[in-house]
Amino acid sequence: MCTKVGGLAPDFEAGAYFPNGEIKKIKLSDYRGKWVVLLFYPADFTFVCPTELVDVAEKYEELKNLNVEVIGISIDTVFVHKVWQEVELSKMISGGVPYPLASDLGGKIGQLYGVYDEALGLDLRGTFIIDPDGVLQSVEINNAPVGRNADELVRKIKAFQHVRATGGKEVCPAKWEPGKTTLKPGIELAGKVYEVYKK
């Protein structure tokens, strides 16, 4: 795995199918200045995958309002992405998923991010949150049978954005939501979290 939380996310270029029907090349570095979610999944026309992509699609407006771009990535060609949008995804959510689906032929991007399974020839379920400076803030990798939760994705992005906004002077405890108690790291807090932490 060539990725490391706190380090720069590896750049890549790939063909992508966009919801307006356009096919074009995208580069991760073109998204600098925005938060980016890379949403790796095994393959189009499978079983758990459409439920995950639609789950994220249902949160897409909220994500856009948080200055987040989403890129779905699998080993399928852009042409298969197009047909999948038309045949299945558009039946699950009006208009299909509203973010681009990139083509990771041969699993080259998946190898960069440590999610490509050579034995299966597929990318595993990997979620990578990248900040506006291109720094990787979160990695989640699931084996193929279990899907992810878009609510938790949004929660984590809000938490990382809060930490960034405070310059790291505040950190977010377990299950933190906006408006809840944050923690101010320092020697004074060591051994006394119980005094300030409220669930």
Rank of each mutant, 00 (worst) to 15 (best):
Val146Asp: 02
Leu124Gly: 05
Ser29Glu: 07
Asn143Cys: 12
Pro10Cys: 09
Val36Gly: 00
Val56Asp: 07
Thr3Glu: 14
Tyr41Glu: 08
His162Met: 10
Asp151Glu: 09
Pro10Lys: 02
Asn20Ala: 14
Gly168Ala: 06
Ile141Leu: 04
Lys169His: 14
Gly110His: 11
Leu53Glu: 06
Ser74Ala: 05
Leu105His: 15
Arg32Val: 05
Ile157Asp: 13
Leu124Asp: 13
Gly6Trp: 11
Ala57Ser: 00
Ala190Asn: 15
Arg155Glu: 08
Glu140Phe: 13
Ile75Ala: 10
Gly96Ala: 11
Pro19Thr: 01
Trp176Asp: 07
Asp133Pro: 04
Leu136Met: 12
Pro145Trp: 04
Gly179Ala: 07
Gln137Ser: 15
Ala9Ser: 03
Leu120His: 13
Gln161Val: 09
Gln85Val: 09
Pro132Asn: 08
Ile129Pro: 05
Leu124Tyr: 05
Arg164Leu: 13
Ala9Thr: 00
Lys198Tyr: 08
Val154Glu: 11
Gly147Ser: 12
Val68Met: 04
Ser138Met: 14
Lys34Ile: 12
Arg164Tyr: 05
Val135Pro: 06
Leu63Gln: 00
Pro145Gln: 02
His81Ala: 12
Gly167Ser: 09
Asp133Thr: 07
Glu195Met: 03
Gly72Gln: 09
Tyr113Asn: 14
Ala190Arg: 06
Ala159Lys: 12
Glu69Met: 10
Leu39Phe: 12
Arg32Asn: 08
Tyr17Gly: 13
Gly167Cys: 12
Glu195Cys: 08
Glu62Gly: 09
Leu28Asp: 01
Tyr99Cys: 07
Asp55Lys: 06
Lys158Met: 09
Arg155Asp: 10
Tyr17Asp: 01
Ala57Trp: 07
Val146Gln: 03
Phe18Gln: 07
Ser103Phe: 04
Arg164Trp: 10
Pro10Tyr: 00
Leu153Trp: 00
Cys172Ser: 07
Thr166His: 06
Phe40Lys: 00
Lys184Ala: 15
Ile26Gln: 05
